[in-house]
Computed example of a mutant assay.
Amino acid sequence: MPKVLAFYLPQYHPIPENNEWWGEGFTEWNNVAPARPRFDGHYQPHIPADLGFYDLRVAETRQKQASLAAEYGVDGFCYYHYWFNGRRLLERPLFEVLKSNSPTLPFCICWANENWTRAWDGLDRQVLMSQDYTAEDSDAHITCLLEYFSDNRYIKINGRPLFLVYRPDHIPNASSYFAEWNSKAESAGFPGLYICAVKNGFVELSDKEILNEGYDAIVDFQPDRRDFPIASSRSQVAVDLARKVLPNTVYQYLKTNVSAVNRIDYTALVEGVTKKEWPQDYRKYPCVFPSWDNTARRKTPTVIQNLEPETYGRWLKYALESVSQYPEDESFVFINAWNEWAEGCHLEPDKKMGRAFLEVTKRTVGL
């Protein structure tokens, strides 16, 4: 059976940088709670149920998350990792997991290697912290990561630590860049690294181009606008047209300042995605999401609302079957996400849906 890994956001505790940029005590919850419905039948705000408005500095919270995940068929967390030229942000939750040796749930890391901006969308506007890829920084970074890779809970493929890169297209000469990392890993006793490129909606490289850059596998991150169904609402038609014909600066201004909703039909999206033939001659890992809605973060949000967990279950079943012929050690399905609350994208229970998405996950993986 393929392993199910859920992306995990560590943005639920205050840090000095967020206090400075967004106000004292800021966490992701500051975005989540004030969200309001934008149309009839729109489910907002998403209010957490079982775990409440938690603080990830609390060990009991981290243990409850891991226990809940394991109970319902999630085999591990993929923690977002924020590294900016030797400076780490939001590192405390995973650092505490490492230091305390608890919880025991397996984990891996996804390097969120975008510029840190006020817009939260990876577009280079109002940059607060930028990325760099110097040789000196690369050496410091892999030295830091080896501490995590050495943990016995860290997910490995034939002994190689699994490491994800969110923007593979941002790293110049990636093949040479990661060759140095592999050399460092081998010196530390590993047979190398297993590096996955996250192919999200911003990455324009083809699968072949990504693999030629030296990546071992690809994660088909979702949602991806390239998989959106044919426009089914006036707002989506307008957004699609604006993206195609307007200069990017004008489009981004309208996206930020004009109040509108881009509504995507979740069922139609799933029907389209699940008709794809999945590659078997190289490793490409599917990504599934239960629902998605970034109203809490955007004036012009994209809403892919899903209140039917069984539809998500069909997508998850397809994903599991798609990689079932991969070698057992290289068979993964990713879920976006465990706790992306401000994107309306979470397996953690909320007041409206309860544990419905978790229950479907459990049934689908056969527990």
Score class of each variant (00 low, 15 high):
Ile47Glu: 14
Asn294Glu: 04
Val203Phe: 02
Ala296Asp: 12
Lys362Cys: 07
Asp151Leu: 14
Gly354Trp: 05
Arg153Lys: 02
Tyr12Thr: 04
Tyr215Cys: 05
Pro103Val: 12
Gly86Asn: 06
Tyr282Gly: 04
Pro247Ala: 08
Arg226Thr: 15
Ser150Ala: 15
Leu105Trp: 14
Arg88Lys: 15
Ser291Met: 14
Pro161Arg: 11
Asp132Val: 09
Pro309Cys: 01
Thr249Pro: 08
Asn257Gln: 12
Gly354Thr: 01
Tyr177Val: 02
Tyr72His: 12
Phe26Asn: 02
Ala342Tyr: 13
Phe190Glu: 13
Cys287Pro: 10
Asp124Lys: 14
Val32Lys: 04
Arg263Ile: 08
Trp120Asp: 10
Phe202Val: 10
Phe357Met: 08
Pro45Met: 09
Ile47Pro: 03
Arg263Lys: 10
Tyr43Ser: 11
Arg118Met: 11
Ala188Cys: 14
Phe39Gly: 03
Tyr166Asp: 03
Leu162Lys: 02
Phe163Glu: 06
Ala6Val: 01
Leu68Ser: 12
Lys299Gln: 10
Tyr166Ser: 03
Val219Ser: 07
Thr143Asp: 15
Gly76Trp: 01
Lys284Phe: 06
Tyr72Leu: 00
Ala238His: 09
Tyr253Asp: 04
Tyr312Ala: 06
Cys287Ile: 11
His141Met: 11
Tyr285Gly: 05
Ile47Val: 11
Pro290Ala: 11
Asn200Met: 02
Ala33Phe: 14
Glu340Leu: 01
Gln325Lys: 13
Asn85Gln: 13
Thr134Leu: 12
Ala268Gln: 10
Ile264Thr: 07
Asn212Cys: 00
Ala319Met: 11
Arg167Trp: 02
Ala185Pro: 06
Leu90Tyr: 09
Thr302Val: 15
Pro327Ile: 02
Glu136Asn: 11
Tyr326Glu: 10
Ala342Pro: 03
Leu68Arg: 04
Ser130Tyr: 02
Cys345Asn: 09
Trp116Leu: 13
Trp315His: 02
Asn294Gly: 07
Leu307Ile: 09
Trp292Asp: 00
Gly41Tyr: 05
Gln305Phe: 08
Gly73Gln: 07
Ala217Gly: 13
Ile171Asp: 00
Arg88Asn: 13
Trp315Arg: 03
Val245Tyr: 08
Pro14Arg: 09
Ala260Val: 08
Leu146Tyr: 12
Cys78Ile: 08
Lys284Gly: 09
Asp75Pro: 08
Gly52Asn: 07
Pro10Gln: 03
Cys110Lys: 00
Leu347Met: 05
Phe178Thr: 09
Asn85Tyr: 01
Lys244Met: 15
Gly366Leu: 13
Phe228Asn: 04
Arg87Gly: 00
Tyr12Pro: 03
Pro279Asp: 04
Phe77Lys: 03
Lys156Trp: 09
Ser233Val: 03
Asn262Met: 06
Pro37Gly: 03
Val239His: 09
Phe357Glu: 08
Leu205Val: 06
Arg283Ser: 01
Ser322Val: 00
Pro349Asn: 04
Asp281Leu: 13
Pro106Val: 06
Glu213Gly: 10
Trp83Lys: 02
Thr61Arg: 13
Glu204Asn: 11
Asp216His: 15
Gly52Ile: 04
Gly313Pro: 05
His13Tyr: 13
Phe202Thr: 14
Gln63Leu: 15
Leu162Pro: 04
Ala70Ile: 12
Ile230Ser: 14
Glu343Cys: 05
Val261Trp: 06
Leu162Ile: 05
Ile195Tyr: 00
Phe95Met: 12
Glu330Met: 06
Asp75Gln: 05
Pro191Glu: 14
